[in-house]
Design a protein around this nucleic acid. Structure first.
Lengths: 333, 333
DNA sequence: CCCACCCTTGCACATATTTTCATGCGGCTT
DNA sequence: AAGCCGCATGAAAATATGTGCAAGGGTGGG
């Protein structure tokens, strides 16, 4: 058994780089020298198909990076306006207005995944919320080698029906794999039933260690929950909350949540009773992270987004064009 | 009349950016969201063909940048060895060994042109030699917007038969256009007939101004001339030198030239009489440029390349794989 | 105002690329 | 040792992309 594992190790250390080497060479020939895949196939003594696959691999694994620069004299009007109005660096993703919400989310997530590489680097502690947006992103991450980075789960994932741990851990793992980072799971439900349980749990040393990490994030990455939107966020579908919870939120004036912590339109959180049972970090804690990236898609989340902006949670916003447009067009300043 | 010009102005200010805007959007959709050109055509209310052209435009004009990263754990062995042995950062261009010299040169020049963008920036004074290598590069430059940059011709271009100015100025212009830089021509022959003429010319104030610029380069870009190689460099084909000149070079032990200045295998230039009549900068002057990029292809130039390395002329080397391999394999280190 | 010209566009065809599918090669299990 | 994955490969089919060409629209000159 040990022998076999040893052999497997040899495999990843030698055979795979052979493939990487080929992919790298193919990429040079294709993207730098404009050869056709046919010609490359000859040079590499293989078939067109294999070259096509090699190039896909090169793109998917981040060997090839494609970036798009706006000419400096043509800055996106919308991005500029968001920067002015909210002091937030926006990345507006073009999506046609008639696209379905699912489509829209996918396309924003895909673009966001590709943009993310710019933010991730070595020696970073990255906080990660989770939800449908993060899930969609996790499927499209472009790997980037980093050292000594750490992915920290921001909020619990258990719900009434399942522990949710499988899903959340899968998501964390994908991020971890893509960036070669350690992952720190947070094995608690999304919401406790009893605030007292949470408080007790929070006193545990293992929890303390995690909370400590959350307080020292370099980067936070999250979507936004919108409890009263027509298309409820993932968190609201899976039996995490029950009718009384919703009624409470409604009564308290909540318009959205970030990592299970709810806020009002003005960004305030005090007195929203569900937060006593939430597992995500206080906004005061979250705001300690110097860079906080929020990925949002769909006009339904507009009110929630406005609240998050008011709360000062966001430093970088990745958002679909339609939503961005409404955000700046309405004179809500 | 004025009205028409006014309208035309509006056109360039609005219509052309309209195209750029479309190209940018198409690039986002294509490269970030993986839509097919067909789908993009629908979103942009145009035809597939136009999208294809839009994307070509986006690539050619530098809106889209494609770069290739070696994984850090797989650094090119050859590049690393060149760095060790010669303290020169190498960019090795893969080219099959059986490729013709013309092919090889083209492919190196194409890759070099695309790599060049990394080096060019605003507020830079760039010295440019010229020859077949630079000519080939000039046809493939990827534009990059810079401010306040300047391209300075390093050596004269006139020869016995033509003034050569048309060709050299075309080449300079292409570089200037690609980077939005001013160009400083150097309207002299490649070699003077009489050293005294050169000295007289060098005392002219207009020449002084140019020499002054050459002494303050931030970046120098040049190929290498190899007078005794089987495939003579451009400079040797066009009637720039005559038989007695070659005999002199041979007697003086010259193995190559950079911007018309010849050197021996050990990098020395003293006592090579042709240099008295050359128009390129002294190596002492050239070496003041903090970054000096040399583009070479073909094993025939190996001896010349070795000499240039010995002379310490090069900080960054762009070279084809075959030549690079021979360079490090022979124990001349 | 008309005309020649040039640039852009979309169509149809030519190429290039991706995907599917059948096959074969290890490695592992029984 | 036979049998069974799981994965990689190339041929062929299915898509996607690039390009020559003719038509249309706008522009500048007469």
């Amino acid at each position: 058994m040990i022998d076999k594992e040893f052999l497997a190790t040899i495999d990843v250390d030698e055979a795979v780089p052979g493939k990487t080497r080929d992919a790298l060479r193919a990429a040079h020939l294709y993207y730098m020298q404009d050869l056709t895949m046919d010609a490359i196939a000859q040079e590499l003594h293989t078939s067109r198909s294999s070259v096509s696959r090699l190039l896909s691999h090169a793109r998917a694994s981040g060997l090839v990076e494609i970036s798009i620069h706006s000419p400096l004299d043509l800055p996106s009007r919308i991005e500029h306006e968001i920067l002015e109005r909210f002091a937030v660096q926006a990345h507006v993703i073009p999506v046609p207005d008639h696209a379905s919400d699912v489509d829209r989310l996918d396309r924003v997530a895909l673009s966001a995944a590709r943009i993310l590489g710019r933010f991730i680097d070595s020696n970073l502690t990255v906080g990660l919320a989770w939800g449908s947006t993060m899930g969609a992103m996790s499927r499209h991450l472009v790997p980037k080698a980093t050292h000594n980075s750490e992915i920290v789960q921001l909020n619990g994932a258990g719900n009434l029906r399942t522990t949710g741990i499988v899903y959340a851990s899968e998501l964390l793992r994908r991020f971890g794999d893509a960036f070669g980072a350690r992952v720190q799971q947070f094995p608690v439900p999304a919401f406790f039933d009893d605030p007292a349980t949470k408080q007790a749990f929070w006193r545990e040393r293992s929890t303390q260690r995690l909370l400590d990490l959350q307080g020292r994030l370099d980067l936070a990455l999250f979507g936004i929950g919108s409890p009263f939107a027509e298309v409820p966020s993932h968190v609201y579908q899976g039996g995490y909350l029950e009718r009384p919870d919703y009624e409470g939120l409604s009564r308290d004036g909540a318009v959205g949540d970030v990592a299970t912590v709810f806020y009002r339109a003005d960004g305030s959180t005090d007195g929203i009773s569900l937060n006593e049972r939430a597992t995500g970090p206080d906004f005061a804690v979250l705001r300690r992270a110097p860079r906080r990236i929020c990925v949002v898609s769909g006009r339904a989340k507009l009110a929630s987004l406005r609240g998050a902006l008011a709360a000062g949670l966001i430093t970088d916003l990745i958002v679909d064009e339609g939503t961005a447009r409404v955000l700046v067009e309405t004179q809500a300043g």
